[in-house]
């Protein structure tokens, strides 16, 4: 099969970018989308030009490195898969495919299709952890965790931190990402002692990074390669509300800053 690509090319954050068209010919429908880009890059290299830069690593949908908005959809047309697990059989022969980087103010562009997602790391630094140090843990079975809680925590923890939720949201909101981590840890008994502090601090950092607010459009959930549920956002809203009610004293709230 053959497709025509319109790829966003931008040499650096401060240089203007533009779409450049490429022909990808003789493709096998069982190729992954990134393998198709590999082939296009081989051709570009042979022509003596600089190939398209794009993030990728594991190519099995788990590391969260790959990004790309394909024909207006973060991670492309298929449901619950990342760009690296999108196959050419999902496209029509002869189709024109537009490839853009994730766009959000909090994800500044680095080059071509590569953006900087370290805002996510800073949100985790604000409280996306349980304050335990190696060596201090009790036996793994000392605290039973109800299976339904452990399963729900796992559903939330499945987030790969790719940022598709931000890319797809009309407000470039990071609510799905942040709520997944807040919910993962707040659902577990181990995470309870820091529950309020965690949600207050992580939301504060999320806002400081310049992500938008949630309008409950559901786009984030729809593009999420791991199908993280919108219900975790509701849970975070609940946790945050509870934290506000439980932390009336300035001292306690300041502690969360």
């Amino acid at each position: 099969m053959n497709v025509k690509l319109r790829v966003w090319r931008q040499a650096g954050p401060d240089t203007p970018g533009k779409f450049v068209e490429y022909e990808a010919t003789g493709l096998n429908p069982n190729m992954s989308f990134l393998e198709m880009l590999d082939e296009v890059n081989e051709d570009i290299t042979k022509r003596g030009e600089e190939p398209i830069s794009f993030d990728h690593d594991c190519r099995e949908g788990i590391c969260g490195m790959c990004s790309c908005v394909i024909n207006g959809e973060a991670h492309g047309p298929e449901y619950k898969v990342a760009t690296c697990q999108t196959y050419m059989r999902s496209f029509q022969d002869g189709e024109t495919i537009t490839v853009e980087p994730f766009r959000a103010k909090a994800f500044p562009l680095i080059k071509d299709l590569i953006v900087n997602r370290s805002a996510f790391d800073r949100v985790i630094q604000a409280g996306g952890f349980i304050s335990t140090s190696a060596g201090s843990a009790p036996d793994g079975n000392a605290i039973p965790v109800p299976k339904q809680d452990a399963d729900a925590a796992m559903d939330a923890a499945a987030c790969i931190g790719c940022g598709a939720c931000v890319a797809a949201c009309k407000n470039a909101s990071a609510m799905l990402f942040v709520s997944a981590k807040v919910s993962h840890l707040n659902l577990l008994p181990q995470g309870k002692p820091e529950k309020d502090k965690r949600v207050l601090a992580m939301v504060q950092q999320m806002d400081a990074e310049g992500f938008g607010a949630c309008t409950v459009t559901g786009s984030c959930e729809a593009v999420c390669p791991k199908g993280i549920s919108l219900n975790f956002i509701a849970k975070m809203n609940r946790d945050y509300f509870g934290a506000l009610l439980r932390a009336p004293s300035k001292a306690k709230a300041a502690h969360a800053d």
Binding site: F19, V69, A74, A106, N171
Partner: peptide, 13 residues
């Protein structure tokens, strides 16, 4: 929160 819009806009869901 988004300083540059997408060229192809598609509202998913």
């Amino acid at each position: 929160a988004r300083d540059q819009e997408y060229a192809v806009k598609r509202a998913v869901k």
